[in-house]
Amino acid sequence: MSEIIKVGIADINIVSPPNTIRTTGLGSCVGVILFDQVKKIAGMAHIMLPDSSLSKTPTLNEGKYADTAIKSLYDMLIKSGANGKGLKAKIAGGAQMFKFTSGSEMMRIGPRNVERVKEELSSLKIPLLASDVGGSSGRTIEFNPENTVLTIKTVNAGTKVI
């Protein structure tokens, strides 16, 4: 019996076959998947904001920010037996749900999230194999650690796999 592991907003989780892992309703948030194809173990983070320096809370919710979420997902995978050098990434999300004429920074949060995720991956030397980012559609994504396929569903642009 396979299960679907759920990842909430600002949440991180890991998965191994036959289970799959999924997060729903990504808007300007970005879903980051790290996986070890040989050991067949993967993890997903649903990040909201680009950088933990934005945080104004006394306790840091690591899953919320691109920089801290990717590091903590990386550590979780290593602890569960993944090979750090064999980790690869796929990402999806970072849409601009609403178009405004005023180009305020808040409205650009999707692209900023994507930029920060890419920086963090390259600083950890994790190759980014595939991405489906930007646009103006919400996404629901599901990753299968068995065949490393990421399925992306949208309301307006159908379903695709990367």
Binding site: L26, G27, M97, I109, S137, G138
Partner: peptide, 19 residues
């Protein structure tokens, strides 16, 4: 926007989510 509720609502949470 006509889209997934979660994707739309999260847009209103950025100011709040830092805090």
């Amino acid at each position: 926007s006509i889209d997934m509720a979660g994707a739309i609502l999260s847009f209103g949470l950025f100011e709040i989510s830092a805090v």
